[in-house]
Design a binder for these strands. Structure first.
Lengths: 230, 230
DNA sequence: ATACATATTTAGGCTCTCCTAAATTTATTT
DNA sequence: AAATAAATTTAGGAGAGCCTAAATATGTAT
């Protein structure tokens, strides 16, 4: 095993800001506001203004006063790298250590900041080069590239669609625990038997066995890949 | 899996100070001086004085001005816990990720600060409750207790002693790599065939096969358990 | 016991990351 | 368009953890 030494040039705080900006941008598709960052990071908005000026000076983000921030290419690479590490650690925690999918987030939030390219390479190999984390979120490669999968919310599907459940759009413990309790797992096949016009609730058949009623709030947050549409 | 939440009340810096104090005390058996701490932590002595006053106020160490510091029971528990985590992670890195024994220290220095009792419990279980790390250093239990093994430096042995190599007293990469190169591994059986009076070099037979000459500097740093003395 | 060398502490200061309060800008309502 | 509300920035400040330079204490050699 021969590797190049990793040098620390990004602080924990910086990593967390970049990650938060990345995630908020993913969610809204727009520039990220000071207040959304402040809320996400649980930090005072004035402190956020301070800090984003610093990382803007480092060219990790572009900042338009009173408008918001965006990641530069350099910032995006750092952010994606943290997300990659976070997801790999989550796979390990679930597959190798026996944690449940709703128990791993906080631990991975710590592990993601450990710096060692060798470690991540070996971990990735050890895990068998997983494509997605335990919630179905895709794991980018070492160069920060994602593979497109064409998944979309179940709510966008039609009656008769046969789909595979591949991820969640909502990561709260309550949602994850609801799915666990309902015995709905990643990889399950869902057949849309009927859709209630009034409240957008879905009647689905899971793995050709159980029939289940899923509320709008649930089907909005189940990401699926269409297997057969008729 | 149900566990109690771990609360962070010790900073990274504090953890590193306590660990350093523990290790320096282990080595010398005496109070730990400001300068030795400064050197060990690569920090200015004046900064050390500052900081030890703070952790003394928190009753993690006892501090006698101009004399040095010692861990209190509370400080000792924290220090041992970090060491426990460090050693468990080293076992994982070597046994599961394929790192060599001279490659794991810096990575474990980061991992040891991850806070989650659940994680450590699961890791310990995953590893099969190891008794020692890849260098033979004992792993204390969750309560901070060490098991005594009665190991001692090979240099204290006599001609004819048959011993098992169980640990190293020196952890430098150069020493570890020397042993690897010489094909001397933890668990090997060493038979002391002769001792050169003049330079304290040892002629040993390894695993009843190879004969090898070990210098004083080597035999001082090989920790062994006597299997048979005649 | 005195003088010199070494170790330790004190004093003052710096950077990082956060805060509150006040000022300013932007958005919304009427 | 003016008034109000909400978001953002500025100004001033704090604690943690580090530094250098100077002062003091401790240890050593004569």
């Amino acid at each position: 095993m021969t590797f190049v030494k990793t040098t620390k040039m990004t602080s924990l705080t910086e990593e967390n800001y970049l990650k938060a900006i990345y995630k908020l941008h993913e969610k809204t598709g727009a520039m990220v506001s000071t207040s959304s960052l402040a809320e996400n990071l649980q930090i005072n908005a004035a402190s956020v203004t301070d800090f984003i000026k610093k990382i803007a000076a480092k060219k990790l983000i572009s900042y338009e006063k009173s408008k918001g921030v965006m990641l530069t290419e350099r910032g995006r690479i750092i952010a994606i790298n943290i997300i990659r590490k976070h997801r790999l650690w989550e796979v390990w925690l679930v597959n190798n250590l026996g944690f449940k999918w709703d128990e791993v987030h906080e631990i991975a939030e710590q592990l993601e900041h450990v710096i060692s390219d060798e470690l991540i390479e070996q971990l990735n190999k050890h895990l068998g080069y997983p494509k997605a984390d335990p919630h179905g979120d895709l794991i980018p490669d070492a160069k920060g590239r994602f593979i497109k999968t064409g998944s979309k919310p179940l709510i966008d599907c039609k009656k008769g669609d046969k789909v595979k459940f591949t991820g969640v759009a909502e990561h709260s413990n309550s949602f994850l625990q609801y799915l666990t309790k309902s015995n709905i797992k990643l990889g399950d096949e869902l057949l849309v038997e009927s859709i209630e016009e009034f409240d957008k609730s879905f009647q689905v058949k899971i793995n050709r066995k159980e029939r289940k009623l899923l509320s709008k709030d649930v089907v909005k947050n189940l990401l699926v890949v269409i297997e057969k549409r008729y």
